[in-house]
Design a protein around this nucleic acid. Sequence first.
DNA 1: GTCTATATGTTGATAGAC
DNA 2: GTCTATCAACATATAGAC
Lengths: 216, 216
Amino acid sequence: MASPESSNSLTDTKARLLDAAERLFARAGIAATSMRAVTAEAEANVAAVHYHFGSKGELLRAVFERRIAPVNEERLKRLDDLEAAGRGPSVDALVEALVRPALEFASRHPGLSELVGLLQAEPADEVGALFEEVFAETIERFTAALARALPELDEETLHARYGFAIGAMVAVITHRGPFATDPAKVIPDLVRFLSAGMKAPAAPSIASAVPTRETP
Amino acid sequence: MASPESSNSLTDTKARLLDAAERLFARAGIAATSMRAVTAEAEANVAAVHYHFGSKGELLRAVFERRIAPVNEERLKRLDDLEAAGRGPSVDALVEALVRPALEFASRHPGLSELVGLLQAEPADEVGALFEEVFAETIERFTAALARALPELDEETLHARYGFAIGAMVAVITHRGPFATDPAKVIPDLVRFLSAGMKAPAAPSIASAVPTRETP
DNA sequence: GTCTATATGTTGATAGAC
DNA sequence: GTCTATCAACATATAGAC
């Protein structure tokens, strides 16, 4: 089926470069990681990364997409399942569908953890556009589903709470806090915390407050 | 009172270097910001930063400490006030004392926002030790106060929730989410969300669950 | 596809005149 | 305290042999 000599060891270098770049970007940051270090770690040549990716920026993009795409696919699959089975998934179920795939992937691929950390603080120059592009669908689908589960929240509050939740989740993924390393422990903890926050009573809007008596 | 010629323009360069470094570190990251860029922005000389700070690492440390120290001072002052007035501050009050100073400082000094972003994702080499050192007292005081307000939570869960809260707060500070830019709007929103999360029922511990009947 | 060799620029740090 | 000049080390990127 495969051509006589191409398939295996030829693309091997490319994969090793991705692995090495992920490891080093995560460990020392993007700007501080030289392509020499990447190629050395991958046991490849300095020119190889230019041949396979064209530039350091494109290598970075490939590294991110490889890890983040499957997380979002799993999230959307879980959301599809929730919406298919009966109508109106609970807040807890939605939060878990959003959070669990990310945390489980992160615990399986330690590189993802620190990669997400980079996504958070790396100057938006290169990463910002990638961020928007990769997460747009997930954000839209989940905020819409949460809006249906929490009809009493105005859109602005709901979007803010979604942002709070992502922030807390990112803290766990990047290990910036005293969190259990076992996903089986931390995921329920986080879901419990975030669901309670999501379901908190909305702020009393100034206009609709005290409707019991009108001042003439 | 002041000595004839020293006080003003002599320390001026040092302050300009701090301002410039803060601006550039925030904009492009630490590793990507050269000291040449810093001294150019400060309209100073390449050697000036070595004269005043000794190295790039010490400059970084000075930049962080200048901004973060006052935030923690304000937090601890508010906590002191809460604990002085009556016993047992509420969860909501504690969360607000933790969160409001940071968000208000960040909205007044835009540089702090992106500086906090750096603290989050910069490889822990240099920043990690600084982080531990600067936030240790705040963490200890607030988790202790929260533990008194939430006696039903075990220590591990409480620390984890504290970490979730910091993560959500950092997301707001670094503008990584659809948050209102007006602190008067976002702070109450965040406090409401986090307080509800803090007060969420604890996970049923496997050991103490179903204590209604003992199996022989 | 992978390598060596090299062109060209930038970095952090220092020495020493003023 | 501030400057110019200069260092060795390292960066990205490319050219061309194999």
